[in-house]
Computed example of a mutant assay.
Amino acid sequence: MSMKKYLKILTLVVFAAILIWTFVFLYRKSRPVEERYDIVIPRTATIEKKTVATGKVEPRDEVLIKPQIPGIISAVYKEAGQKVRTGEVIALIKVIPEMGTLNAAESRVNVAKINAEQSKQDYDRSNELFQSGVISKEEYEKARTQYNQSKEELQNAQDNLEIVRDGISSRSAQYSNTQIRSTIDGMILDVPIKVGNSVIQSNNFNDGTTVASVANMNDMIFKGKIDETEVGRLHEGMPITLSVGALQEKKFGARLEYISPKGTEENGTVFFEIKAAASIPDSVFVRAGYSANAEIILDSRKDVLSIPESSVEFSGDSTFVYLLKDSISKPPVFKRHAVKVGLSDGINIQVLSGLNSKDKVRGNKIIANK
Rank of each mutant, 00 (worst) to 15 (best):
V84G: 02
R85H: 15
E88F: 05
E88A: 02
E88Y: 00
V89W: 02
I90N: 03
A91N: 03
A91C: 04
I93Q: 00
I93H: 04
K94L: 13
V95K: 06
I96M: 14
I96S: 09
E98N: 10
E98F: 08
G100R: 10
T101H: 12
N103G: 05
N103R: 12
S107H: 10
S107C: 06
V109C: 05
V111P: 00
K113Y: 08
A116C: 06
D122Y: 06
D122Q: 08
D122T: 07
N127Q: 15
N127G: 12
Q131A: 14
S132W: 13
K137C: 05
K137I: 08
E139H: 12
E139S: 15
E141M: 11
Q146V: 08
N148K: 15
S150G: 02
L154W: 05
L154T: 05
A157G: 07
Q158M: 14
N160M: 05
N160P: 01
L161H: 06
I163V: 14
I163Q: 11
I163D: 08
G167F: 00
S170C: 04
S170H: 07
S170M: 06
R171Y: 08
Y175M: 13
Y175S: 13
N177C: 07
T178S: 03
Q179T: 11
I188V: 08
I188D: 00
L189H: 06
K194V: 07
K194S: 12
G196N: 00
N197D: 14
